[in-house]
Simulated scan of single mutants.
Amino acid sequence: MIRVEVVLAWPERAASRLLELAEGATVADAIAAAAIEGSDACPAVALHGVVARGDQRLHDGDRVELLRPLLADPKDNRRRRAKAR
């Protein structure tokens, strides 16, 4: 058995689940087992801050981070800040 944490954060709150999964479990297995509300709307996932694939195998102590969609285009934000100067 391996222990992993699945996390989804919003600006005002966060949800976290500690799971015990079988050896050989994948990122997709952890997300399904965590069943965090809103996880289906997350376009990407990371392991310890590094973008990961759903079929990637997990190791004991891994932290699976569900990444929410961007609310604003970073390029547009940069242009707005430059224009304001």
Rank of each mutant, 00 (worst) to 15 (best):
I2M: 07
V4D: 05
V4F: 05
E5Y: 03
V6P: 07
V6M: 12
L8M: 12
W10A: 08
W10Y: 13
P11Q: 05
P11E: 02
A14M: 10
A15C: 05
S16F: 02
S16C: 13
S16W: 03
R17T: 02
L19T: 06
A22K: 12
E23N: 03
E23T: 06
E23L: 11
A25C: 00
A25N: 01
A25V: 00
T26V: 01
A28I: 07
D29F: 04
A30P: 02
A30G: 04
I31W: 00
A32N: 02
A33S: 03
A33C: 00
A34K: 01
A35T: 00
I36N: 08
I36K: 06
E37L: 04
G38Y: 08
D40C: 04
D40R: 12
C42Q: 01
C42W: 04
P43M: 07
A44L: 12
A44S: 12
V45P: 02
V45N: 01
V45Y: 00
V45R: 08
A46M: 09
H48V: 00
H48I: 00
H48C: 02
G49C: 02
V51M: 13
A52I: 12
A52W: 08
A52P: 09
R53F: 10
G54R: 15
G54M: 15
G54V: 15
D55V: 10
R57E: 14
R57N: 11
L58G: 06
D60W: 08
D60C: 09
D60T: 11
G61E: 09
D62T: 08
D62H: 14
R63L: 11
R63H: 07
V64M: 09
V64K: 08
V64I: 15
E65Q: 14
E65H: 09
E65I: 05
E65L: 05
L66P: 04
L66E: 07
L67F: 03
L67I: 14
L67S: 08
A72M: 11
A72E: 15
D73L: 10
D73E: 10
D73I: 12
K75E: 13
K75I: 09
K75D: 11
N77M: 11
R78F: 02
R79T: 08
R80P: 02
R80S: 13
A82I: 07
A82Q: 15
A82F: 10
K83F: 13
A84H: 11
R85C: 03
R85V: 02
R85H: 12
